[in-house]
Design a protein around this nucleic acid. Structure first.
Length: 957
RNA sequence: GCGCUUGUGGCGGAAUUGGUAGACGCGCCAGACUUAGGAUCUGGUAUCUCCGAUGUGCAGGUUCGAGUCCUGUCAGGCGCACCA
């Protein structure tokens, strides 16, 4: 009987549903293992063969762990909020929920065909009120928290309020309070207590973890909303490609920056790839440096700069402020005012994009000078766009000799350059390396630099590293400055002016943002009749006529004994895409819980994700936000683990392999790839589904599009039309999309699963090429033939397995057990093929061997494995079988083969008994007649014996 | 510019701690069975001047021995990018 994959797969997929084979419940008697895929955004295009790659890889791992006796959680859900559905809604008036649900159904249908072991009872959808209740809840918790820098954790805002009431903004040591804030504020307890509600609320916003701030945002008029930095590439939106401009707006933000150090430290505790860790480190951008205070000459004002090169204090020749800096107005002298204003105007007219692309040297002198606290020198203060307001203090000390940007500026404006490192030649370019011996600090010529305010402090003779340390110590002791750590990581903007997202659980009471009581959550997304902004320019939620909020408002009004007619305005912004995807992994642990995001028991049982699989493109988005979100939940005692994803595997992208036909210019004649050289041709993408092994199906091509119906062809000498090909992104427009449904239909899900894994390492990007799939399909057909007889029943005898059979089997057990653990699936499959070949040659009909083989097959080809298991007489699922135990004894050889090599060059093998000693092997090898031939005319210097591998004889003339 | 990462046959890709480079599959070649083959089976398949020599992007180095370790360099991919 033939391998009938269609019937087999259909049958088992049904039975898995009927028997709830993949339903998982907490079981304290078993160790847990949590496997998770990044949940997909269900796009209208459906799945192509690239999408399931990660799901298959994790499915294999999940099944493997289950067979090893773990209680495996492997859930799936949908990241349902997204711009495409909303854009579609704006264009067609179709509710985004409707398209989203349609897409979800389509995804589910496609996923089901591939035979995953997802526990669908735990499915979550971010747009489901039952789910986003907890997104809103978490936001409220963040609103009601601040970040204590001393304890490095989130604490209830009440503690901060209490501190303000009693001590103001001063810490116990008299300095400013050590909490994460937008800007440092100074006030006394009396001042605090005298303020009204509105003022207090405004001040607290400076400290809350979820806060409202005025920020420069990436405003995308085309989409009518703000975008996160990672949603903007080259000045246009990733979705839609609309232009993006900078605009100051009132926005909800999350104080992600408060967690910068913990986000950095946490990387050492998780098993992620170096490249992702590096990307995150880069993104967090920690830099250790020194803040130094510079007095403004002839003024009481001073300002602080940040530098990582404290050793270059003696090389400062000018100062630079960011054009946006508040100091600009203070330092600009009346004489320079016109020039400065003009410059500021120029900078404002430049878009972020222009500033990013061309690094023009521009700037203007402010008219003021700053006094270098080390030398007493007066340094001119300049204003230039190359200094960024958002980093450090927005002001720098310029050391042109040792910083290339300062150098370019100094050269352009004719400012002095003082080299500070022995032997550094700065006549052509700056010497930026942090290496060498410091000199000129201070200058040897004391008399000229011995002016008022100069120190006797010297760095001369020290290495750069030593000089930095010495300067840090000095500025700290003298109070000129302090050691400071800066981070590049910025706070996340958390609001969008869109419809299709989570509404904020916030209303405005006399202009004060106020949290809706927890028991009234969730605030459901209201119906609207159009999805665009309102006529008055409010976000689309302003179109809502009926709100769930109305009821809540009534309750609040009743409880607070104010005029029953009062209607408080509700927040009309919605949350961004990353809101719902930041803690979804916790929800899978306990998806139906209506009392908590996750119960203590479920959280303590499942802990965190052991294996997370998804694309590396989320490195600076989702993977930072969810780590931040989870750390916050850890701080407030919801999650018992600080890091959400212990091990991360980034599956590579599956690229498309496009095919081309070549049309001869101005004709409807197409020439085969191998003959196109003789003509002037235009390559045209052709649907890969009508091409097989680069040979075009000419008739199908004619039928493909009306304009090709009359096409003529110049075929090659074999009478075939050969197509050209290229590796490109898999996309509809390139006609290279391969649909998994089609592969499943033609070869079966088990073949698809096998082939996707056989293609190469999971983490590597590679082009999809359907041509190779035959090999995997053939393997399954051979396996079917090996396992069953003509009648389609299993072919076994009661015979005990032979030694050779056991050896073949246990070689596979050893290889597969180790390889799955390291996600080396392609080599496992190769080993399986070798093993099958071996057993087929041996005519193996042992039940023991076939049972073990079935279990070994189960992670990769669950349908076929179930069928074999069933045919072997089992009534339970193969998922509940036990992973075969390796017996190394079967792998032992009676004899060992060693390669005899001369001067490292392998020549011939020799066979020895398994227990041969080094000395015996050496003696035998040297006495061998073949060896004698090789050694003629040489003397033996020494012999190196690597047991079981080789005997290397070192020869000399 | 900085950081990470990858370079192995016609192709996808294998190679524990340095120890017979090219497993396994595709493709190709030959043969068998066939009315037929885009079915199935068997064998072969790195290169060359084919005894033998040369081969893992390139150039060096360490070693008895290097795809693997070290130094430099080139090329592709990804991330960040005026971050002081």
């Amino acid at each position: 009987m033939e391998y009938n994959f269609r019937d087999i797969e259909k049958k088992w997929q049904q039975r898995w549903v009927e028997n709830k084979t993949y339903q998982v419940v907490e079981d304290k008697n078993k160790p847990k293992y949590y496997v998770l895929n990044m949940f997909p955004y269900p796009s209208g295009a459906g799945l192509h063969v690239g999408h399931p790659l990660g799901y298959i890889a994790s499915d294999i791992y999940a099944r493997f762990k289950r067979l090893q006796g773990y209680n495996v959680l492997n859930p799936m859900g949908y990241d349902a909020y997204g711009l495409p559905a909303e854009q579609y809604a704006i264009q067609t008036g179709q509710h985004p929920e409707k398209t989203t649900f349609q897409n979800i159904d389509r995804y589910r249908e496609q996923l089901d065909k591939i035979g995953f072991c997802f526990d669908w009872d735990r499915e979550v959808r971010t747009c489901d009120p039952v789910y986003y209740k907890w997104t809103q809840w978490a936001f409220q918790k963040m609103f009601n928290s601040f970040f204590c820098l001393k304890e490095q954790k989130a604490l209830p805002i009440e503690e901060l309020i209490h501190h303000f009431e009693t001590k103001g903004s001063r810490d116990d040591d008299g300095g400013p309070i050590k909490v994460a804030c937008t800007e440092e504020l100074h006030f006394s307890a009396e001042e605090w207590n005298s303020w009204d509600e509105k003022k207090k609320s405004d001040v607290l916003m400076n400290y809350r973890i979820a806060f409202m701030g005025e920020t420069m945002v990436n405003w995308c008029a085309g989409l009518g909303t703000v975008l996160a930095n990672d949603e903007v590439v080259d000045g246009v939106s990733v979705r839609g490609g609309f232009p993006v401009e900078q605009k100051k707006m009132r926005q909800w933000c999350l104080r992600v920056s408060a967690y910068a150090q913990r986000l950095l430290d946490g990387l050492d505790t998780i098993q992620w790839s170096d490249s992702i860790k590096e990307t995150q480190k880069n993104w967090i951008g920690r830099s250790e440096g020194t803040e130094v205070e510079f007095k403004i000459a002839d003024s009481d004002e001073s300002f602080t700069i940040f530098t990582t090169r404290a050793d270059t204090m003696f090389g400062v020749t000018f100062m630079v402020l960011a054009p946006e800096s508040e100091l600009v107005a203070k330092v600009t002298t009346p004489e320079q005012k016109a020039a400065v204003d003009e410059y500021i105007k120029y900078v404002k007219g430049r878009t972020e994009r222009e500033r990013m692309i061309d690094h023009k040297v521009t700037g203007v002198f402010s008219g003021s000078y700053a006094i270098n606290p080390f030398t007493g020198d007066k340094n001119p203060i300049w204003i230039s766009e190359y200094v960024l307001a958002g980093y450090g203090t927005g002001a720098i000390m310029a050391v042109p000799a040792h910083d290339s940007r300062d150098y370019a500026f100094a050269k352009h404006f004719g400012l002095p350059i003082i080299p500070l490192i022995e032997g550094a030649d700065v006549s052509e370019e700056s010497y930026d390396a942090k290496e060498g011996i410091v000199c000129n600090s201070p200058k040897a010529d004391l008399s000229s630099s011995q002016q008022e305010g100069a120190t006797s402090f010297s760095l001369n003779g020290l290495t750069v590293k030593e000089a930095i340390a010495a300067t840090k110590k000095y500025v700290t002791e003298t109070g000129i400055g302090r050691v400071k750590v800066n981070y590049r990581l910025r706070d996340a903007i958390f609001s969008r002016q869109r419809y299709w997202g989570e509404p904020f659980p916030v209303y405005y009471k006399k202009g004060i943002p106020t949290m809706i009581p927890e028991e009234c959550l969730p605030i459901e997304l209201p119906e609207v009749d159009k999805f665009q902004p309102t006529e008055t320019g409010e976000p689309p939620l302003g179109n809502a006529k009926v709100w769930a909020w109305d009821e809540v408002n009534k309750k609040i009004v009743e409880n607070s004994k104010i005029d029953n007619e009062t209607v408080f305005p509700i927040e009309l912004y919605t949350m961004p895409g990353f809101a719902g995807s930041s803690a979804y992994y916790l929800r899978y642990m306990d998806p139906h819980n209506n009392q908590a995001l996750v119960s203590k028991e479920a959280d303590e049982y499942w802990q965190n994700v052991d294996l997370y699989v998804g694309g590396s493109e989320h490195a600076t988005g989702h993977l930072i936000y969810s780590r931040f979100w989870n750390k916050f939940l850890f701080d407030i005692g919801i999650s018992c683990k600080e890091e959400p994803f212990q091990k991360l595997i980034n599956q590579g992208m599956i690229q498309g392999r496009s095919n081309f036909v070549y049309r001869i210019k101005d004709t409807n004649t197409f020439v085969s790839f191998d003959k196109k050289g003789q003509y002037e041709v235009t390559p045209i993408h052709v649907d890969v589904n009508i091409v097989n092994a680069d040979i075009l199906d000419v008739e199908a091509f004619k039928a493909w599009r009306p304009e090709y119906a009359t096409a003529e062809f110049i075929l090659n000498d074999e009478g075939k039309y050969m197509c050209g090909w290229a590796v490109e992104k898999m996309s509809k427009s390139m006609f290279n999309v391969v649909n998994p449904d089609m592969i499943v239909e033609k070869f079966g899900a088990d073949t698809l699963r096998l082939y996707e894994m056989f293609l190469g390492p999971v983490e590597q990007s590679k082009p999809w090429d359907t041509n190779g799939i035959d090999g995997c399909h053939r393997f399954l057909k051979k396996l079917w033939k090996f396992m069953t007889n003509e009648e389609g029943t299993i072919n076994v005898s009661g015979n005990a397995p032979s030694k050779a059979e056991l050896k073949a089997l246990h070689t596979l057990i050893k290889k597969e057990t180790a390889d799955i653990e390291s996600f080396s699936y392609n080599t496992t499959i190769a080993a399986f093929m070798v093993c099958l070949n071996e057993l087929t040659k041996l005519n193996c009909d042992s039940r023991e061997v076939k049972e073990a083989l079935t279990v070994l097959l189960a992670p990769f080809c669950p349908h076929l494995a179930e069928e074999f298991w069933h045919l072997l007489g089992h009534t339970t699922s193969v998922c509940d079988a036990a992973w075969p135990v390796l017996n190394e004894d079967y792998l032992k050889e009676d004899s060992v083969k060693m390669m005899v090599a001369f001067n490292g060059k392998a020549r011939f093998p020799l066979e020895f008994p398994a227990n041969v000693t080094k000395e015996e092997a050496e003696k035998t090898a040297l006495a061998d007649p073949q060896a004698k031939k090789w050694m003629e005319g040489f003397t033996v210097v020494k012999v190196i014996v690597v047991p079981g591998k080789m005997i290397n004889v070192v020869l000399k003339k």
